[in-house]
């Protein structure tokens, strides 16, 4: 599903975020990306939906070399990837429901079908009762779950999350991770970056260690 071959990312100022990173994530797999802050986790994750381009090496997603993609092809790549960031990037000028509808409006789906899917996604993350609220009214954990609902509403094959439990208490964090596991169980490939080693060890899934830009 995702493979990195000797990927390096260097910034113009001289900072090296990633050095010779290679790994492969199979379809339907769930893996954690562990590392301290500044280890390069966010950079690695950003390479997958082409938010950043690798300085060298190849990033292959679903058989496509992301680094070589034309600008016009990037939206179609991103439609197949669900993204959840630590800063959830929710839109506060609209309701919870409209936030989840956003990915569906891009693809020009009939409104009834889109509404059905949006509600299904909200239901899966347990936010159906809050669909009319404004995201600002939600707690941290609920906002994160809203971000996940938006990320999965278009049924992407790949789900990427950057520190999804960072600002959450243990109970909310566990709820959020349970949602990821549930999606993985229906076949979605999941890659989660986190610095919380303790949380990760409970799951017994594959762990990728990133330190100083290198995969150890």
């Amino acid at each position: 599903m995702v493979s990195f071959s000797a990927v390096a990312k260097r910034y113009p100022g001289g900072k090296t975020a990633l050095e010779s990173v290679s790994f492969a994530l199979a379809a339907g797999e769930l893996a954690f990306l562990i590392g301290r802050s500044g280890a390069g986790k966010s950079t690695l994750l950003k390479l997958i939906p082409a938010i950043e381009r690798p300085t060298s090496g190849a990033v292959i997603v679903s058989g496509q070399n992301v680094g070589a993609l034309q600008r016009a092809a990037i939206p179609y790549l991103r439609r197949n990837i669900g993204l959840v960031f630590q800063d959830q990037k929710l839109l506060y000028d609209r309701s919870v429901f409209d936030n989840v509808m956003l990915p569906l409006s891009l693809t020009g789906q009939p409104p009834q079908e889109a509404a059905r899917r949006a509600r299904a996604a909200l239901d899966k993350v347990g936010l159906l009762a809050r669909e009319k609220s404004n995201p600002i009214e939600l707690s941290g954990g609920e906002q994160q779950r809203l971000a996940i609902a938006r990320a999965v509403v278009n049924r992407p094959a790949l789900l990427i999350a950057d520190e999804p439990t960072a600002n959450l208490d243990a109970e909310s964090a566990a709820k959020v991770l349970d949602i990821f596991v549930a999606f993985n169980q229906v076949g979605v490939t999941v890659l989660i970056a986190t610095h919380d080693l303790a949380l990760v060890e409970r799951f017994g899934k594959r762990v990728l260690h990133l330190a100083e830009g290198r995969l150890g």
């Binding site: 939906p49 938010i51 939206p75 991103r78 439609r79 956003l102 990915p103 891009l106 938006r150 278009n154």
Partner: peptide, 8 residues
């Protein structure tokens, strides 16, 4: 956000 989730 639209660009992030795949708007052309």
């Amino acid at each position: 956000v639209s660009k992030l989730i795949g708007a052309t």
